[in-house]
Every structure is written in structure tokens, then in C-alpha cells.
Design a binder for these strands. Structure first.
Lengths: 342, 342
DNA sequence: CTGAAAGCGCTAACAA
DNA sequence: TTGTTAGCGCTTTCAG
């Protein structure tokens, strides 16, 4: 069993283990990193010493020697207050969990909101991390070009919208498939006039999600004329947009680019004494905690973030291997979390 | 200006800078760590070389030498699906931001949900982190005793409920003050029968929050008899509890131990065709995104997480100083975020 | 299969 | 004020 380190100021080193086991330091190192090289009884003796001493290789020393930190850097941005987008929480946990299984830890850092590249630079030059996971790609991905130029290994969560020719590794979720799923679900429920509330046109993700809605509508021969609205991603915008649409286009259902916008629709319905799920159906996007707990439950497109994390770590392992292998982008399909609002 | 690293396989080292500036390696080291020791012109020359080369000290080497990683470890647990508790997101970001200002990065790790100590051990023995931030102290804090025994520096977010004599550093938010605030607010609005929906008795935090409610009630000479309920922290529980209380105790307002429970109350009100904020007032706890976006807005007790992060980092800096200084626990006061539900 | 030597890049201590 | 020496703990040669 593992013993307490006791009152030692410094943890035991390779040398301590070697002495205790009566072997050389190198043999201990091999026992840890290449156990196959040792004779069974020697290995057992060394492992016993390791266990008794509670030895664990010093990271800094190992990092220095192997030129690897086994750390994955990820920039974290402040959660937008007043929105429902808590996607990060779920993703971060999945990433930490998956990384651990691959022998990596996740290092968080922050940067100026204005400068998409700040924070990466220092970590890279000081060889503090082996690779990055780039998540904030909603407005294009200037980080990608920058990182690629520095030959920094990274995987993007989000496809290279602004540069389809980009050759870096990426993992993304098919937003159009998600909204198609949502729209088709509503059509099957008998809805014909389904409105879209999405983001402004400069959002690649927003346009992608919108395309799933119009695709599903047109596939059933349904018109989308006058049924779409593009606004800011706030509850207030969703509320106003849905009020206008309700008055002018008389939809019986809404598909939204985010749970935040969908909540705006619920606000409008409430004000008009209408009940979501009965008179008017609403579907959001992201399956946030809000969607899960708000009465009567908000049907929402759920991204497979656990799977995203798995694919990202897989890609990372590939590019950190010798020789590095960079596979093609990976596209995952979301599913629909059905609740009372539809 | 900083130049591109170019196609160099390895980043520049101290030696490269020294050669370029025509000084010894030690002088470069001093330029970085003790600039005061250098003559102005030498310093300028060295800094210029550093800049031209894009030099940044190799972390692993520095860590090895100084026996410090400038990393703070924090265990992250899976966000509970179906609850509104997204406190972590906000706190993590604040911590990352504040840590950066103090020269630290945050390293995330995970562990078995069953074993509160798993994950810490390895990081500690391999000297991968300088200190820990312990957040999951809702059911007592076995980590604290364990870490203290190993002489591992750490600061707890949450006071030592199960061991008031514990001498470790901690920062916490006064939950009782928060519910007192909420209850007093409702009383001022004219409510007299204010019900409490909280957690089961084995939750220290739950009992603390409950005490703020009863304190405020009794201070105004209001009875609490029959007005309290203790349940699981789920929407369904909050819904059932509020239904029962409504039938049996006829309260005009609810104070809840969490936004999740408060959402349960909103469910009940909706089922009964009652309107939150008009007939019945509801106050939650945590000011989650749900509280912010749900119609008509959920009044909620908001923890000053940014301030918590600042205090935690301050405490961390103290205990990592030479000699270490461990101050007393720090208690912060929450405020009330007023919305439509009250 | 095991051991000896070298050195990753840095900084603390000391010498000049 | 600057340079020299040593060594942090580990792994990668290369010998035995």
C-alpha cells in the first residue's frame, strides 16, 4: 500500500527508490517507463520500493528531459451573463476527463477578449503546454492561422468557416443537421408555419443552423417566406423577434439558434397568455440547463460534447505522436432532447 | 517587436540570448528575474536580444530549478444535468483570471465521484502543482485533512463545516446572510407567510441557508411553523414540496436553497395557473443563468464569485510566500439579484 | 537485462 | 555589476 510521505520536505526521487531497491537509478526509470525491459523479480522489487516510498516521477524533471509537458492548453472566456449558453461547463468537464485517460491534464488560461491570440504566445514559447484546444471559433478562427504558422499543435472545436482550405485538425457538430432535426420533428407534429429566429448574418454558425431549418422546410414543400428573423443572441432580442413574427407571419412553431433566443420566445408567449407546447411549439439549441429546468421544459438540440472531447483528444494524440498524423476534420451529429415545449 | 520564432524546431534558450547580447547566461537570467541587478545599458541590450529572439524561459527547466510549477490544481466535477447550478462556470473563469494576474495558471483534473481524494495524490507527489483550490466541500471536507497531513498548500472554497477547529485557509460566502436578505426583502414587500424549501439535514450548507430564513422570520416575530420543507436538490422535489406547502401552509412566498428548487416552485405555480411575482413570490439561490433568463426573471441570491476568486488567490499567495502566512478564514456577503418573481 | 555517463535549461551561490 | 560553477531529477545513449 501507499505510505504517507511523512514529514519529508521533498518527495522521494528516483535515487531514493534505487537505493531502497538496490538497483541503479536507470533501472528504476525503466521500471516506470519500460517495464518490459526488466526481469520479473527485479521489476517486482522496484515496484515495491516505489510503492513503499510513494514515489511519483518529478514532472518538471521529466518534462525538461522529454521536452513535453503533457499539458493541453485551453483558453477560457467569460460566460456571457444573461444568456443560457452554458455549453462550456459540460465540454470542459468532458475534455478534462478524456484527457486524463490519455495522460494529459488541461491547463486553463485567459486572454483579452479583443485579441484572439493573446495568451497563446507565452505558453507556447515557454513550452508550458504540448498543444492547444481552440474553442472560440464562432467568428472565424484567426488563432488557427497563427498557431499553424508557429507550428503549434492544436485541434479546433469548430470547422474552419473562414478558410475551408485550412488543413488543421478540427472537430465540429453539424448545426444544420440539428436544426433540420428540430424542424422535421415539428413538421411531423403537424406544424406547417415554422418560424426561425437566428443570429445576424455575419455568424457562420448562425447561417449554418439556419440552413438546416430552411432545408427541412423546403424538403416538405413548405414556404419559409417571411418566417425568418436574424437578431442578437439575447433574451430581449428573441422576445421582440418572436412578437413581431407572431403578429406578422402567424407561425405555430419556432426554431431558434440558441436556448437564449428560445427563452425570449417563452417570454413573449407568457406575456400573451399563450402556453408553450400547447398553442405554440418552441425548440432551442444547446440543451442548456435552462432548457432542462424551465417549465414546461424546452425541447432543444443537444450537441454531443462528450463525443467532441473524445474526438479532440484522439486528434491531439495523433498530432503529438511520432511521426505526427493529422486526420481530416470530424463532423458529429447532434440529437434532439424532447421536452414539453414541443 | 516580437519576431516570429521562424522555423526553429526548439525555442531559443538562455544561452542563445546570452550569445546574442554578448553576456553570460546568468546575466540574462538576472535580466529576467532581477533586473535591478543589471546596469541600465546591459539590461537594455539583454532585453533587446530577448525581444528579437522571442525568448521566454523554459518552464520545465525553471520549475525543476525553483521547485515550483506556478500551477494551481483544481478538481472539477461533472455538472449535474437537470439542475440549475452553473456556479462553477463563473467561478472558474474568475479564478483563471485572478490567478493569471498573480502569475499562476489553473490546472484542471478530475477524480472519482466516490473518492474525494482521488486525483490530488498524484499531482502532489509529482510536484505538478504548487497548491490546490478545493471547491467540493458541500459534504464536509475530507480533502482538507488529507491535504493538511501531506503539507500540501491549499485554500478551500467553503468553510470547514465538519471541523471548526481546522486551521487551513478558506474563503466562503455567508449563505445565511443571503437567505436573510431574501427573506427580509419579501417581508418588506408585505409577505408574512414565507415558506422555505431547502436540502436535507445532512447538508451543512443547506442548514446554514435555512438558518438565515428562520432568523429573518423570527426577527420580525413571524412564525415558521409548518413552513419548511427539506428535499433533494432537484426540480421535481421543489415542485412537489411547493405543492404540498401551498396546500397545507398557504404561504405567499417561497425562499429556496437553490435556483433548481425555485424552478420547481415555478413549475407548480404554472400547473396551478398562478403567476410567479404576482400571486406568489419566489426567491432562489445562486443567480444561475436560469434565474436570469426564465420569465418573469427569478430573484436570486448572488454569490460574489469574482471576489471569492480574488480572496482565494490572495490566500494562496500568502501560503506560497517565504515564510508562508496563513490568515484566518474569509467570509463574504452575497447580494440579492432582484427580478420579476418577487 | 542492468549500469554509467551525459545533459535537458534554468537559477542559487559564490567568485571575480 | 558580471561571470563561473554546480546541480535540480529525469531519460537517452551506450557499455557491460
Amino acid at each position: 500500500m501507499t505510505r504517507s510521505i511523512g514529514r519529508l520536505a521533498t518527495p522521494p526521487t528516483l535515487a531514493d527508490v534505487a537505493e531502497r531497491a538496490g538497483v541503479s537509478r536507470q533501472t528504476v526509470s525503466n521500471a516506470v517507463n519500460n517495464p518490459d525491459l526488466l526481469r520479473a523479480d527485479t521489476l517486482a522489487r522496484v515496484l515495491a520500493a516505489i510503492d513503499e516510498l510513494g514515489y511519483s516521477p518529478n514532472r518538471a524533471a521529466r518534462n525538461l528531459r522529454t521536452r513535453a509537458s503533457h499539458l493541453i492548453g485551453m483558453r477560457i472566456n467569460p460566460a456571457q451573463e444573461g444568456t443560457a449558453n452554458a455549453t462550456m461547463d459540460r465540454f470542459v468537464h468532458s475534455l478534462v476527463e478524456t484527457s486524463r485517460e490519455a495522460g494529459y491534464h488541461v491547463l486553463l488560461f485567459s486572454g483579452d477578449h479583443d485579441d484572439p491570440v493573446s495568451g497563446y504566445d507565452d505558453l507556447l514559447r515557454s513550452t508550458a503546454v504540448d498543444a492547444f484546444v481552440v474553442t472560440d471559433t464562432y467568428l472565424g478562427n484567426p488563432q488557427a492561422a497563427w498557431l499553424q504558422q508557429r507550428r503549434a499543435p492544436f485541434v479546433a472545436f469548430g470547422r474552419p468557416w473562414d478558410n475551408p482550405a485550412a488543413e488543421h485538425a478540427w472537430v465540429d457538430v453539424d448545426g444544420a443537421a440539428g436544426t433540420d432535426l428540430a424542424t422535421s420533428h415539428l413538421i411531423e407534429r403537424g406544424h406547417h408555419r415554422i418560424a426561425w429566429i437566428g443570429w445576424r448574418k455575419d455568424s457562420f454558425i448562425g447561417e449554418d443552423r439556419r440552413s438546416g431549418w430552411s432545408r427541412a422546410m423546403h424538403a416538405r414543400g413548405l414556404s419559409t417566406t417571411g418566417l425568418a428573423s436574424r437578431v442578437e443572441d439575447t433574451v430581449a432580442s428573441g422576445r421582440e423577434a418572436s412578437a413581431v413574427l407572431l403578429d406578422e407571419a402567424h407561425p405555430s412553431a419556432f426554431v431558434c439558434a440558441s436556448d437564449t433566443l428560445a427563452m425570449g420566445v417563452l417570454h413573449t408567449l407568457r406575456e400573451r397568455g399563450m402556453e408553450a407546447g400547447r398553442e405554440i411549439a418552441v425548440v432551442g439549441f444547446d440543451d442548456s440547463q435552462v432548457a432542462q429546468v424551465v417549465p414546461p421544459g424546452l425541447t432543444s438540440v443537444r450537441q454531443p460534447l462528450e463525443q467532441v472531447a473524445i474526438e479532440i483528444v484522439k486528434a491531439l494524440e495523433g498530432m503529438l505522436a511520432h511521426p505526427p498524423v493529422v486526420g481530416p476534420g470530424v463532423m458529429l451529429t447532434p440529437r434532439l432532447a424532447l421536452r414539453g415545449s414541443s
